[in-house]
């Protein structure tokens, strides 16, 4: 029996947007019925364009936002029955921008030890110091940086500090929200290598949110593709990348620009604009941008079907 570190069942998050005096209130479905399950020790890559709801999912899982409906289990427990400290001990985030994720007024040691102090988990200052030293060694930060401030560190070092802060309580799950996209290429490789090493050393589970498919393919064991608040395709990383079924996944894959001078620029037939999530299209939400769109697609929203081992939300996954 597979043990899941994280499971969501038909989870939804709606925001009420006031459209001004004359338009009344509108509902924005940021996350619209998402089922995800991450087995312990695996890496789930969550992929999608900006505005698709992947960051909202991250906030729901971290307990920073309350879900509208659905169920969310963290290590087998429903999230609404857990306190914020309990959630924090199991799941910790690493954010995208290492320049805004560290408090500029605190020293590195203070930043890394924050979760310990907030939870009251340490036995005195000596214990905190020892744990900070240990974790700094694990993430490859020189001990002399302890008394420095974030502005004195490079982007890569800052991201290591963010990882150290996330790991100091030894959580089971680390939620990485675009952890490398603000970094230089050579530094990005260092951080990815480190994340992979840490996973096997500390037996971690990652939810890896990214828009960079090359990175996700490199790191993830499972992949979920998100579009307008829904998962449109989900499956094993190898299957999904070698044999994508949903036209959106195919378009995403086609738009990855791998360094290959023999290839030209791909033709992306996605139209020029991402739809407004306040006013989503009828039927299949992807149909206005889909090159294989049929009549049915604009009327009926597709159900998830199993297609060569993957879950696909498309009426005509066979067409391709």
């Amino acid at each position: 029996m597979v043990e899941y570190a994280l499971q969501t069942e038909n989870i939804k998050k709606e925001y009420t947007i006031s459209g001004g005096i004359f338009h009344g209130k509108k509902t924005l479905k940021a996350v619209d019925g998402v089922n995800l399950s991450i087995p312990k020790g695996s890496i789930l890559g969550l992929v999608g364009e900006s505005g698709c709801g992947k960051t909202t999912i991250a906030k729901l899982i971290l307990g920073l936002e309350k879900k509208t409906s659905g169920e969310l289990y963290i290590a087998g427990k429903e999230i609404s029955s857990m306190g914020s400290k309990e959630i924090a001990r199991i799941i910790q985030p690493v954010f995208q921008d290492p320049y805004s994720s560290l408090n500029p007024r605190k020293s590195i040691a203070k930043i890394i030890s924050l979760p310990l102090r907030a939870q009251g988990l340490a036995n005195g200052a000596a214990d905190i110091e020892k744990k900070v030293d240990d974790i700094m060694e694990i993430v490859g930060l020189a001990p002399r940086l302890k008394h420095n401030y974030p502005n004195q560190l490079s982007g890569g070092q800052r991201q290591r500090v963010a990882v150290a802060r996330a790991l100091i309580m030894r959580p089971e799950v680390v939620l990485c929200d675009e952890p490398t996209s603000a970094l230089d290429v050579s530094v990005q490789a260092q951080i990815l290598n480190m994340l992979l090493d840490l996973r096997s050393e500390l037996n971690l589970t990652y939810l890896f949110i990214s828009h960079d498919l090359a990175v996700v393919e490199h790191i993830a064991s499972h992949v979920a593709v998100m579009y307008l608040g829904r998962i449109v395709e989900e499956g094993n990383a190898e299957d999904l990348f070698s044999n994508p079924s949903h036209p959106y996944t195919q378009a995403l894959l086609a738009s990855v620009l791998t360094p290959d001078p023999e290839l030209g620029l791909p033709e992306i037939q996605l139209g020029i604009e991402y739809p407004n999530p306040i006013d989503p299209p009828s039927g299949c939400s992807f149909h206005p941008r889909c090159s294989k769109c049929q009549e049915k697609c604009s009327i009926v929203a597709p159900e998830a079907v199993i297609k060569s081992g993957k879950l696909v939300e498309c009426h005509y996954p066979d067409n391709f």
């Binding site: 490079s154 050579s186 490789a189 393919e217 490199h218 790191i219 190898e238 990348f241 360094p259």
Partner: peptide, 25 residues
């Protein structure tokens, strides 16, 4: 050469394997 080894390239780099990286700053 170092820069090129840093990028994961689907089909060329093996998933989960160590990427090349340039040490130091």
């Amino acid at each position: 050469r170092g820069l090129m080894e840093c990028i994961p390239v689907p089909g060329k780099t093996k998933p989960g394997e160590k990427l090349g990286s340039i040490p130091g700053i």
